[in-house]
Write a protein that binds this DNA or RNA. Structure first.
Length: 479
RNA sequence: CGGGGAGUGGCGCAGUGGCUAGCGCACUCGCUUGGGGUGCGAGAGGUCGCGGGUUCAAUUCCCGCCUCCCCGACCA
């Protein structure tokens, strides 16, 4: 194996590796604005895959897409006090427009609760108008002090779903449903094992009653929040005076949710499956599932062209996303490396040898294994091969997670586990005071209380402060 | 906002008080090669971050400023 020119080894320096992969695979590029990035076509295609999958699910549930302005009057943002307090340190504010000082500064949206709910207040009059389910695919801006491509950029793309319900139960059900979509997206499509559950008081969204989260485990021992879903209670309804008449002709505040998934998910995808040769994309999310690599001298023979056309026809009939690499200005070895860095799940090599005995050479990206198969077998088993890759990637992810999450009982064990870059599962009291102390001493915070754990009520002691605790939380450092 | 580092062709870097500022990668053209990042030749590309000072002469020394990167506190 030839040493990659610029790709750092993943196990040697995961941060450096991560940046190398992003640039070498052509996912993104730096932008002239600090903290912002350019998402290049190959990276954007991944986002489009995510969009098409998720968009289908929400529409099936009756969610409708809409678009609200990127500018939010500052006065509007101030209406929900906890909300503005949570976001004010990271706001970008426009004070000049058309060469003149603006009377009311405009905030570049960090999220759209406020501007949407001001409209909802005007739209909703009756319980018959409910539930209202609106989603928007857009960009948002949060002026973070430290940025990192995909994982934390000043501007990022996301979807934000916002719903309004008559009852608390319905809103809670919606928040959990959205969480379920995210879990499904990560586990079944990204092939990443995740923790789905609830956030602690200290970690929840500014203005929410309750925040649900999807947490990913990353090999450097950190946890990455992959998506969130909030049960907003009636906090925003009260702040924005959303009032409706119920069946008994009483004026009531409805119950709301909001939930989001951002381009950060692409960062999680890169980190979860990538290896020393670059990106590894699961077939269900890969923009290109199969790359055909013809092998020839000088120029391809007409026989080879016909043979490749035959393979292309098979792939098209199976609805496979594929590409054929006819480039002549790059050598075979270069092209192999290129597709490996790009993480294409399956490479199909065909040259005179394969042509002669009616076969194709398959190279599996996730295992780096090669296999010579008859063309007939290729056609028959291709979908199975792709499914197997998908399954194996998920199994691998699950194993990695179980290996790195350790259960601890005492403070000593907890601190030691965090120090040795593990995520911890432990009884924890959930109090903000305890969490602040935990963070000060270990740099770790509570990540999530898994849904299955929420039901449990055991008599135990908090592993950190020793006060009574009844549930096991996942605790660790975060990205 | 605290600590550290760096600004020199597109990218990564070297270098020098003086005459024509280099190297690798990438790029263009020609040939060569092609089953794991091929090799050769020719070529294009630079206000040496900005401003000031010292000097016969500054990319090089001095002062100021700006920007970026890394490490911490804040975060989808």
């Amino acid at each position: 194996m030839i040493e990659k020119k610029a790709l750092t080894k993943k196990d040697k320096d995961i941060s450096r590796w991560y940046l190398d992969v992003i640039f070498l695979a052509g996912l993104a590029d730096y932008a002239p604005v600090k903290g912002c990035m350019i998402i290049k076509p190959y990276g954007y295609k991944i986002w489009e895959r995510i969009q098409s999958i998720f968009d289908r699910w929400i529409k099936e549930d009756g969610v409708e897409n809409a678009y609200f302005p990127v500018f939010i009057p500052y006065t509007l943002l101030e209406k929900e006090k906890t909300h503005v307090k949570g976001f004010s340190p990271e706001l970008a504010i426009v004070t000049v427009g058309g060469g003149e000082e603006l009377e009311t500064p405009l905030v570049v949206r960090p999220t759209s609760e406020t501007i949407m709910y001001a409209s909802f207040a005007r739209w909703l009059k009756s319980y018959k108008d409910l539930p209202l389910k609106i989603n928007q695919w857009c960009n948002v801006v949060r002026w973070e002090k430290r940025t990192y491509p995909f994982l934390r950029t000043t501007e990022f793309l996301w979807q934000e779903g916002h719903t309004v319900h008559l009852t608390e139960e319905e809103a809670e059900e919606m928040a959990l449903k959205a969480l379920g979509w995210y879990k499904k997206l990560y586990e079944e499509y990204f092939a990443i094992k995740v923790f789905a559950g609830i956030k602690s008081e200290a970690e929840k969204f500014a203005g929410a009653k309750r925040t649900y989260t999807i947490e990913l485990f990353i090999e450097n021992g950190k946890a990455l929040q992959g998506a969130t879903s909030h049960n907003l209670g009636q906090n925003f309804a009260k702040a924005f005076e959303i009032q409706i008449l119920n069946e008994k002709n009483q004026l009531v505040y409805p119950w709301q949710t909001s939930w989001g998934l951002s381009t950060r998910s692409i960062g999680g995808l890169i980190l979860s499956h990538g290896d020393n040769n670059g990106l590894v994309l699961p077939p269900k999310i890969a923009p290109i599932q199969v790359v055909i690599l013809p092998v020839f001298d000088n120029s391809p023979s007409s026989e080879l062209k016909d043979y490749v056309a035959k393979i292309e026809k098979i792939l098209a009939s199976l609805n496979i996303r594929f590409k054929t690499d006819w480039r002549t200005d790059k050598t075979l070895g270069w092209k192999r490396n290129d597709w490996e860095i790009k993480g294409v799940p399956l490479r199909v090599e065909v040259g005179s040898k394969e042509l002669r005995n009616d076969s194709v050479l398959l190279a599996f990206r996730h295992s780096l294994e090669k296999k010579l198969v008859k063309l007939s077998e290729f056609e028959k088993n291709l979908e199975k091969f792709l499914e197997e890759i998908q399954t194996k990637l998920f199994e691998k992810s699950r194993e990695k997670v179980s290996q790195f999450v350790v259960e601890v009982k005492s403070k000593g064990e907890l601190v030691e586990a965090i120090e040795s870059k593990r995520l911890v599962k432990a009884f924890w009291c959930g109090s903000p005071t305890c969490e602040a102390k935990l963070k000060a001493e270990t740099k770790a915070t509570s990540r999530v209380l898994e849904l299955e754990e929420m039901e449990k009520k055991e008599k135990a002691k908090c592993a950190f402060c020793g006060k009574s605790a009844s549930q096991r939380w996942i605790i660790g450092r975060s990205y």
